[in-house]
Design a protein around this nucleic acid. Sequence first.
DNA 1: CCCGGCCGTTCCGTTTACGGAACGATGTCA
DNA 2: TGACATCGTTCCGTAAACGGAACGGCCGGG
Lengths: 184, 184
Amino acid sequence: MSTSPSTVPPGPDAAGIGRRLRALREERGLSLSLVARRAGIGKATLSGLESGTRNPTLETLWAVTAQLGVPLTAVITGAGGGATVRGTAVAATLLEVFTEAGASYELYRMVVPPGTTQTSPAHHAGVTEHVTVFAGVLRAGPLDAPLVAAAGEHISWCSDVPHGYASIGADEVRATLLIRYPRG
Amino acid sequence: MSTSPSTVPPGPDAAGIGRRLRALREERGLSLSLVARRAGIGKATLSGLESGTRNPTLETLWAVTAQLGVPLTAVITGAGGGATVRGTAVAATLLEVFTEAGASYELYRMVVPPGTTQTSPAHHAGVTEHVTVFAGVLRAGPLDAPLVAAAGEHISWCSDVPHGYASIGADEVRATLLIRYPRG
DNA sequence: CCCGGCCGTTCCGTTTACGGAACGATGTCA
DNA sequence: TGACATCGTTCCGTAAACGGAACGGCCGGG
């Protein structure tokens, strides 16, 4: 369309925001017209917003996300940085830390490029890892007894032994990784 | 315009965003003029932004936060509400939305007070839910075949049938809830 | 003292994101 | 088959967010 994607003037990812908005709307089975009307904005505005051809004001974006029942941050994540840990294969972004009476938890967003493998030394006793795969196929777990999960599946293991992560097939693996550290 | 004094028209908390921007700038010992110049925006814009009297576009806000070295989400979190969905028993806060080729995912932080129960109607076909429990004991899943998970455990089920969530025992249940919506 | 520089705010003309209306496409029913 | 509703996109006048310039206030140096 208008701008060649080669030289993107750095800025918020309007196209990505548009894609997320459209996905959220369609998940809910709502029409563009209906959402625009409920949000009190013009159809033209929402149309241009979803196609990524506008640079919305906060107020406009808020009206839409509120109508879809998601926080503003749900559509603009990916813009800006969080703490990202990079290994030989795995890139993990810390989303949140939960501290409970008996244990603490770290929740990561994880990406494993196709055809790559990474191994990790044993953690402390009792540490467990829980992975839910979004896309691709992941083999992970103890090196001597790995598990496999495809999109939509979940695996977990005790990581107090050497363990690893590997993508299987041609697709990048995307997943959440939850690590549980028992108190002590 | 400015005045709508009694009832604040629901929207992003412009005043709060302005306060956070100004705080971030002053923490760094930078002048308004300097930040505006570096961000490539007018001083008038930044001034109005910090005082909460403007409704910035995403691009403008991004230019400023990028210059301050923080993600966009750093200034808008808590603005207009982190969307928390409350049911009869479950309080769920949406942490993030992941959109993939074949499906999209919503990741929630979930709390179930002791001794409470909630049921949910069936979702669309193919929707699955994945729960990892941090604290307490949770019984959840299809009403006719519920599953049980204690701290550190994970359960998942197909939620295209009526399903429910209930805390067991005296402790509040804390968990993450990941809902998968297949495309189509 | 006066001057030059920088501060943050206000004024103002320009740019652009906004919503309403018109449009072609598609689906449903008599 | 035509009448009608609703879909999402495009056109266009208007409202408002934008950047530049001017303003008063505050310092430090000559």
